[in-house]
Design a protein around this nucleic acid. Structure first.
Length: 310
DNA sequence: CTCGATCCCTGGACGC
DNA sequence: TGCGTCCAGGGATCGA
């Protein structure tokens, strides 16, 4: 599931491969995850991809104005615009030779001026694509929290300690921090020895600082390793990341804690599977780990299976 | 403000 | 083997 490091990896890959390309035409498959499908068809052709940025879990393809004067004057295409891409759970975006057969669940193809297509594949369609004018983009980006890689420890502590919610929920809340998802929330909490169900307001300054440091360390390391590949994640070159080998909590239910050898537990916190060490990350008062159904296959086994298939 | 529940969607795993 | 069921989860939304 693409979180900040995976989205950053994909964005970097796209920067290497499609910057400066012009979009010639648009072909759409299923469109129920696209804000305004016809806007893509109307406004993308003729634009050049000038930059690829990441904002939280969003990718933003910055597009030039259309230089064809006659058409541009009438429909707003004389202004630069952006294509917003959210990979959701299972989204992949990568260029491919236009002649190459389409993979199943390819829903958007942008024909480029070098006989390639930028293709968006998303089996579950939890992602999102939107054509955004400058004004719509500004509106879209309001309400997001700090970038976890940029945020100072003081601001981080302010954002966490002033809230009543559970720390896991706060880490996942894109309005608090943009880009953190389930994996990196659990990993940073394990490293900082903080239970996911603790209330943000109950963390002391030292714990908030530890969490800030661990979260940044983990995200930076994960970016270097091109993200975590569990289930479907592949980068823009179609390669899996390597950070899943460094997971210490996520997906490790029943396996030994790397610090104290106590079996890692799983509980639902903030509506998500949350993995933690019951000894290193002591529960807050009153928190009960409910019995959970036995896992059929651990995430680790899934990864192994995937790698063999490759 | 914060919570849980529900929905979206598909593929894969499992039980029978 | 084949079919039904459950589950994963980011995010939107809604009611408590």
């Amino acid at each position: 599931m693409p979180e900040l490091p995976e989205v950053e990896t994909v964005a970097r890959g796209l920067r290497q491969t499609i910057l400066g390309r012009r979009i010639l035409s648009v072909t759409l498959g299923k469109t129920d995850f696209i804000d305004d499908p016809s806007a893509l068809e109307q406004h993308l052709p003729g634009r050049q991809i000038e930059a690829v940025e990441r904002y939280g879990k969003f990718m933003l393809l910055r597009l030039s104005a259309v230089t064809d004067g006659g058409r541009a004057a009438t429909n707003g295409d004389a202004e630069p615009a952006s294509l917003l891409v959210h990979l959701g759970m299972t989204g992949q975006i990568a260029p491919a030779p236009a002649a190459q057969p389409l993979e199943k669940h390819t829903h958007v193809c942008l024909l480029l001026d070098d006989e390639r297509e930028l293709r968006y594949i998303d089996p579950r369609r939890f992602g999102r694509i939107a054509y955004l004018t400058k004004a719509l983009l500004a509106e879209e980006l309001t309400g997001f929290g700090a970038d976890p890689l940029e945020v100072s420890k003081e601001e981080f502590a302010d954002r966490i300690c002033g809230r009543r919610g559970r720390i896991k929920a706060l880490l996942l809340d894109q309005g608090v921090l943009r880009g953190v998802g389930n994996i990196y929330a659990d990993e940073s909490l394990w490293r900082a020895k903080i239970h996911p169900a603790r209330l943000g307001a109950n963390l002391d300054k030292k714990q908030a600082e530890a969490l800030h440091r661990m979260l940044q360390d983990i995200l930076r390391k994960a970016i270097v390793l091109r993200g975590s590949s569990i289930s479907d994640f592949l980068d823009a070159e179609g390669e899996p990341g390597e950070y899943q080998r460094h997971h210490r909590a996520y997906g490790r239910e029943g396996e030994k804690c790397y610090r104290c050898k106590t079996p890692i537990r799983r509980a639902i916190v903030a509506g998500r599977s949350s993995y933690f060490c019951p000894r290193c990350q002591p529960s807050p008062r009153g928190f009960i780990v409910l019995p959970l159904p036995k896992r059929r296959k651990t995430e680790r086994e899934k990864i192994t299976r995937r790698r063999r298939e490759h």
